[in-house]
Nucleic acid binder design. Structure first.
Lengths: 259, 259
DNA sequence: AGCGATTTTGCAAATCTTTGAAAGACTTTT
DNA sequence: AAAAGTCTTTCAAAGATTTGCAAAATCGCT
């Protein structure tokens, strides 16, 4: 895997190699010990350290990588996935904005495209939990409110129960949400429970909920669901969505708009 | 890697070379020592200096690069006015941090320096209203909570009554505040009433309040005052402050620490 | 330039960490 | 319930770090 024959490895290096080696699945202590050419005692100590830094989980006889279930790509990678669809969806969504609206902008790269293109609509108040969107909007002259909360680095959003403290005190006319997965039957789903909590709260508080999701998100589902499909008023998507799905959505009173 | 055969390197040059050399991953002290042709003791001292300027992390036996110079910064930084004083004040302030603390970081360039240098103290929770600080801390692995509220673009902080919603729900052991002006008689003052509101609230909620202010801030006063001087427990400043001011502060039970 | 003061550097002794091995406690399997 | 394997604890040795000190380099001042 990695020669590094020359010198002894530092514990930091060993830990990195262990994580790398664990991507192939579970490994026993004996396997790791012979891969790294250190004693089993040392492997155990490394695993203990990795475990309480949250990277892995120890199982009897070995260890497994933790953050692997339905793993969410890193922030930079995500933006690159369907850039064309994301842009056209964002442009379509902007057409729904009206003077005097108080809108909520969620995290995710599709909604971020929206923030980047936000035109100079008079008297617009923007509420967001996305630090990326906030960075885009900073220089513009709209009124900008961030909901507080716990920072989640993977999505660069503020999530969790603390977000309720502010969301409960503002009134939102239109919310624009992104998602990891969306099933017409069960609604939107995410990897993180705190993120799901905040999305659900926003859906409850907003007069009108727009979901921005390119067709690759359809029929994908992740770990935690937020509310259910009927909490969404309008889905803005691209033409890759199946006619059957459209029919199912319309039967639930969800408007489908194509970019 | 780099010849530079002619003369001895200055420590600043060595430190730059160390960082460059570390981009390839972890390095041992012995490797760095032979690369730079200096003794291991010197390498250790350089690493110590680099570590508490926040650039690298020392691991037993060597060091690794901490913040890989990744994508362009989320927020552009304004040039600081007294960078040297601010840095040393920030470094002094960091020494007050303990394992398990929940700290508040205010806006302003001095406190921002603190955020940049924040070491890997276990179990540290950071609450902040500064988007600049949040951007710095994003990549690190501390628990990070943003108070929500209205965004004030001049200071890039979240301010106003909405900040109370979250501040009232967290308990802060140590708060580190910046300010525009500070008078020993009347306390800290700012240009914006919303900003003043938030500072005042933080001072009420924190167990211990540290004010980080270089001596140019002393005896300057701005528009709105937050609380009064006695709300501050400790002032961290530079040696430019007058002995009379120190005496006045001590008479109000405010500890004065020099960077 | 010259001289003293300050800082930086390298070395070595003392201290602290990490490592591997072995004994005993605990889990899983038969 | 016994056997086999795995985990935790303990200890000594090897290696790394810190600290104190003296030599060298640098700086500041006349």
């Amino acid at each position: 895997m990695n020669p590094e024959k020359t010198r002894k490895l530092l514990s930091a290096e060993r830990e990195a190699l262990i994580c790398e080696s664990l991507t192939g699945g579970v490994k026993t202590i004996a396997e790791l010990s012979s891969e790294l050419k250190v004693s089993e005692a040392t492997v155990r100590r490394d695993l203990e350290s990795l475990e309480n830094s949250g990277a892995i989980r120890r199982v009897y006889g070995g260890a497994e990588l933790l953050r692997k279930r339905n793993s969410e790509p890193l922030y930079e990678e995500k933006a690159a996935i369907h850039p064309q669809e994301k842009t056209t969806i964002a442009e379509k969504a902007i057409q729904f904005l009206k003077e005097g609206d108080t809108i909520f902008l969620d995290g995710g790269s599709t909604v971020l495209e929206m923030a980047k293109r936000l035109p100079a609509i008079p008297n617009l108040t923007i509420v967001t939990n996305s630090l990326m969107a906030a960075a885009e909007l900073m220089e513009k002259k709209h009124r900008l409110i961030l909901v507080g909360g716990e920072f989640r680095s993977l999505s660069r959003t503020l999530v969790g129960p603390l977000t309720a403290k502010i969301l409960e005190n503002v009134s939102i006319s239109k919310a624009f949400l992104g998602t990891i997965g969306f099933e017409p039957e069960r609604g939107i789903s995410t990897t993180d429970p705190n993120e799901a909590f905040t999305k659900e709260l926003v859906m409850k508080r907003a007069d009108k909920v727009f979901l921005l999701a390119d067709s690759s998100k359809l029929a994908v589902s992740s770990f935690v669901f937020s509310g259910n499909a009927s909490d969404i008023d309008t889905l803005i998507t691209d033409s890759g969505i199946s006619p059957a799905a459209v029919k199912l959505l319309k039967s639930q009173n969800i408007e489908v708009i194509f970019s």
